[in-house]
């Protein structure tokens, strides 16, 4: 994943504190998006074996990737709803709500550009 994402909603999402080459006119506050994903128990069994012998567990990599993208997407949709042009200074954090499920949330500052 790159640090600059053009999301489905057209809001620019960056992990730095400004959009290079553009001026920020207004700070609209914090926007937030989260996603909890899981794979079926069949993948869980497979992953348990993989974990025993080493190597990348692709099923879980994909899971994490999906969760991350969805969290960013939801955050961007929220930003779009309040009329933002971009989300800057985005951070991620994780948590565990349910056993064998990945929870990721993304948050950043929604801004208007000149």
């Amino acid at each position: 994943m790159s640090t600059v994402n053009k999301t489905v909603s057209g809001v620019e999402v960056v992990t730095i504190s400004n959009i290079p080459g553009r001026d920020i006119t207004e700070n609209l506050g914090i926007v937030f998006g989260s996603s909890v994903q899981s794979r079926s128990f069949l993948f869980d069994i497979f992953a348990t074996f993989r974990n025993m012998f080493g190597g990348e567990i692709r099923a879980y990599t994909k899971l994490l990737d999906t969760a991350q993208k969805e969290a960013v997407d939801r955050m961007a949709r929220q930003a779009e709803a309040i009329g933002a042009d971009a989300v800057v200074d985005v951070h991620f954090s994780t948590s565990q709500i349910a056993y064998k499920a990945a929870e990721i949330f993304a948050y950043g500052t929604a801004i208007k550009l000149k």
């Binding site: 989260s34 899981s38 079926s40 929870e103």
Partner: peptide, 18 residues
Amino acid sequence: SRLRVFVGGTLVAHDAAI
């Protein structure tokens, strides 16, 4: 969430609460 974790997919049960 238990049913969903078993079959796989997005857990929507906690979205609103998060």
